[in-house]
Amino acid sequence: LKWTLAEVQKYIDDNNVPQNSLHKKGFISIGCAPCTRAIVEGEDIRAGRWSWESSHKECGLHSPLAPKGGINEVKN
């Protein structure tokens, strides 16, 4: 929990841990396609998630209200 991002990357590189190819393209925090963008140097690692919103949100994939099957819309 106390590793820096650089320490995590060093461990990945040193131990040949498979990594999502999007990480090297600036997608540090990866969610679903419409909710994720690459970040630029100096931005917080979560800046690419829900970047257009002012509040901290998730797309619903992690919501206890999300229906089974991966659909991220909750129907009333």
Rank of each mutant, 00 (worst) to 15 (best):
I30W: 07
S51N: 04
G69S: 10
P34N: 06
D14S: 05
I28Y: 10
A66N: 12
V8D: 01
G48H: 02
K10P: 00
V40F: 01
Y11C: 09
S63I: 09
P67W: 03
G60N: 02
S55G: 10
K57S: 05
I39N: 02
C32N: 12
L5E: 06
K24C: 02
K57Q: 09
K57W: 11
T4K: 05
N20I: 08
I39E: 02
P64Q: 07
K75Y: 13
P67S: 10
D14T: 00
C59K: 04
S21A: 15
H62Y: 15
K57E: 01
P18D: 01
P34R: 08
Q19D: 01
I12M: 02
I30D: 04
D14A: 07
P67C: 06
H62T: 14
P67M: 09
A33S: 15
I12C: 07
Y11M: 07
I30T: 08
N76V: 15
C32P: 09
Y11L: 13
P34L: 07
E7A: 05
L5S: 02
K2M: 12
E73Q: 13
K75Q: 09
W52D: 10
A6R: 05
R49C: 02
I71A: 14
G60M: 07
E53V: 09
I39A: 03
C59T: 05
G69L: 05
K24Y: 09
D44V: 01
S63Y: 11
A66T: 07
Q19S: 15
E58D: 14
A33L: 14
I39Y: 08
K75L: 13
S55D: 12
W3Y: 08
N15C: 01
S51W: 12
S63M: 11
I30F: 05
I45H: 06
H23W: 13
H62R: 13
A33F: 12
V17K: 06
S29C: 09
C35H: 11
N72K: 11
K2D: 15
A38C: 07
I71S: 15
W50F: 14
D44W: 05
D14C: 10
A66Y: 03
H56D: 14
P64E: 11
G70I: 03
G69P: 08
Q9T: 07
I71R: 15
V8A: 10
P64C: 10
E73G: 02
N16R: 15
N72W: 08
E58Y: 10
G70M: 09
V74Q: 08
K10M: 01
G31L: 02
S29T: 13
G69T: 09
C35G: 00
A66H: 08
H23Q: 08
L5K: 02
G69C: 11
L22G: 04
A38L: 01
T36A: 02
A47C: 04
K68S: 14
Y11A: 13
P18M: 04
L65I: 03
E73H: 11
S63W: 13
I30G: 00
G26I: 07
W52Y: 12
W52G: 05
P64Y: 12
